[in-house]
Amino acid sequence: MANGNSSIISGYDEKRLAHVKRRESWVAFILFLASLSTLLTVFSIIVILVTESLPFFKTVSIIDFLTQKEWTPLFDQAQYGILPLISGTLTTTWVAMLIALPSGIIIAAYLSEFIRPSLREIIKPLLEIFAAIPTVVYGYFALLFVTPVLQKFFPELPGFNMFSAGIVMGFMIIPYVSSLVEDAMRSVSKEVREASFALGASKLETTFKVVLPAASSGIIAALILSISRALGETMIVAIAAGMQPQIAFSPFQAAQTLTAFIVQVSLGDAPHGSIGYQSIYVAGLTLFCMTLILNLIGFYFRKQAQSK
C-alpha cells in the first residue's frame, strides 16, 4: 500500500495493515504446514515399508518369494514364499464379500427406493453400529459364538477356521457396502425412474433393472473398496482364523492371513533388523500394494458414479 495512491491511509493504518498482512500470511503458512502432515504420513508409510523390506530381498530372491509354497520365516529352516499368506487373505475376503455384497446391495436398494426417508434416518444409524463395533469384539464373536454354532451343523469344522472369520467380517462390512451403493443409487436422476414407471415397470423392476444398472460404477466402487477393506482387516482373522500359514482355498480350514502374520510376529519378540522384523514389513508392503491398487481403482469408479 506504500505507493503514491495511498495518501489517504495514515501512517498508523499502514503499520496496522502490515501487521495484519504479516499475521495472515503466518496463519496461512502454519495451516499449510499442518495439512502437510497428511502427505507426510502417507509418504512415510510408503518409505518405511519399502526401506525396511529392501534388506529382506537381499536374502530372498523375488522369484522365490512369489513362487515358493511355504512361509516359515521364523523357523531355522526358513522358507519365504508369500503365497500361503495371500491365499489365506483372499479366502477370508471372498467369504466376507459373499455375505457383504448381496446383503449390502439389497439393503441399499431397500433404503434408497422402498422406504420412507424418515424411516431411513432411523435405520441408517442402526446400520452404522455394525461398522462402529471394535474389530476385536467381532473376533471374539467369530471365535466363541459363530464357530461353536457352526460346529453344531458341521462337526468336523476346526476351532480356528476362515469361514466364521469371513462371515463375521462380512457383517462388519455390510454398512460400508450399503452406504456406498445407496449413494450411487441416489445420484441416479429422478427422471430415469419416472421414465421407467411411465413404461409400466414396477418398483422392483425399476430398482433392479433401471436404477442399479445406472448406478453400476458406484456398485463396482463399493465392491472394490470393500474388498480392500476386507484384505486389511486384522483382528477378526488374527483371533478366529488361526495362525498356520498354509495354502488353503477352502474356508473350512485354518490359515493365516498377511495381517494375522504381522500380529503374530509383533506379539512375539522380533528384534529390530532381524529377518522376522523385516518379514512383517514385507507382508505389510504386499498388503499395502494390494489395497492401494484396489483403492485407486475404487476411487476412480466412485468419482465416475458421482459425476453422472
Binding site: I45, I48, G232, T259, I262, F288
Partner: peptide, 12 residues
C-alpha cells in the same frame, strides 16, 4: 489414508 489398512499405520 482413509483406505490404508490400520495395521500399516502400526508398521509405520
Amino acid at each position: 489414508m482413509a483406505g490404508i489398512p490400520s495395521i500399516t499405520f502400526g508398521l509405520m
